[in-house]
Nucleic acid binder design. Structure first.
Lengths: 213, 213
DNA sequence: TAGATTGTTAATCGATTAACAATC
DNA sequence: TAGATTGTTAATCGATTAACAATC
């Protein structure tokens, strides 16, 4: 029988893989060679079958019944499934507190993200550098985006400016937007908006406290 | 018939409400009095029935058939459902780039969150202030947590320190954790961990680019 | 009244969990 | 071989969407 093409990995599963990866990297550091789905499941408090399905989706027939999966093989397979081996250039718009924090963070390399430049409306910031990236006026966005072949836009402007910034990014040819503003962004079909919904997180924390506290 | 107690609001729905709120606030600013579910749905690209169910869950029989919902009433109801009217004190651990950004951000007030103090392992930071909050050594955590009756812990330390910090926070009596490290945290049943899974967001962006780009 | 929209019950869809044969 | 675990098919569960009567 002909095997199906790469079985689709669900959105939810993608959310779990970073935690698998962290756990597997620790096992690898302690020189553990094999790991089983039940072992991962109990450590991460997930259902054993769910883990097995997740692993099967990225690492076909790597598991040995009665033994488990080779740790390093799993690590490689998960990294590939999460596209951590790809390189994507990004522009960041909004060099406020959060924008600066993201610019300064050195760890995005591990996830395949490279922020190449930043933009802000405040003229006093123009020309200055944060985390080695220069801050430009918004007027330069279009030029830099196409010149550097950028595909990701990161929006860290205040909520009321997000929509306009998004349109500018899309017009410049960007294909994916990482949005930190709690604003719905309308984009053409070929563009993906990934929202970082901190307001929802805070609501869930608050809800828990209201119920348990 | 006796009406059921407050119908449960799903996790997913809670993620949508902040976007409703933003949209409704804009309508309110432009003095619009009524809004209908189809109107919200088309603006936010959601299914009309989903919006209606969401609104019904927080704002029982506020809607008038043929007309819609009063905007201000909806705003109030959503804020209450998201517990934005409650006040919760939080401690932040890890005054690196992201920690500093969160400490400096003034908008958490709107969500009912008040960060009262920060902690870091680096002695050179001790005693300094960021966003009006003093940074203390970790040894002070337990004392300050109970003295100020803090219920939320925010973890912005590197991944390998997250687990230990979490244990310390839980031991100090905290009831909810907002975790920015890509690490699974094991906590007692009465404690909620809310993960901000940026690694998953990046994977989804990268996946989209690999498929469309 | 006619038109639009609400609110609810039923159908569908996707993801999680259960059950179990295959295999190292 | 016996024990543990894999990998897959079936059952369950929760959320989304469809259908439709009620009502302003």
């Amino acid at each position: 029988m002909i095997p199906k093409g790469s079985s689709e990995i669900s959105r939810q599963a993608i959310g779990r893989f970073p935690y698998y990866l962290k756990f597997l990297n620790e096992l690898n550091l302690s020189r553990q060679e094999y790991v089983s789905a039940p072992m991962i499941a109990s450590s991460l408090q997930l259902h054993e079958v769910q883990v097995r399905k997740d692993l099967a989706a990225v690492s076909r027939r790597a598991g040995k019944p009665g033994v488990g999966f080779p740790v390093t093989r799993l690590i490689d397979d998960i990294k590939r499934a999460l596209h951590y081996d790809s390189r994507n250039r990004a522009l960041l718009v909004g060099a406020g507190h959060l924008g600066k924090a993201l610019l300064s963070y050195g760890g995005f390399d591990d996830y395949g993200l490279e922020i190449v430049a930043a933009f802000d409306a405040d003229p006093s910031l123009h020309g200055s550098e944060i985390g080695g990236k220069t801050i430009f006026p918004l007027e330069k966005l279009d030029e830099l985006s196409s010149r550097l072949n950028v595909r990701i836009g990161i929006i860290t402007v205040p909520s009321n400016a997000a929509e306009e910034v998004c349109e500018r990014l899309v017009a410049s040819g960007i294909l994916a937007v990482w949005n930190f503003a709690p604003t719905y962004l309308s984009v053409p079909e070929h563009v993906l908006v990934q929202n970082e919904n901190m307001a929802a997180s805070l609501a869930l924390l608050s809800k828990h406290l209201a119920e348990k506290g």
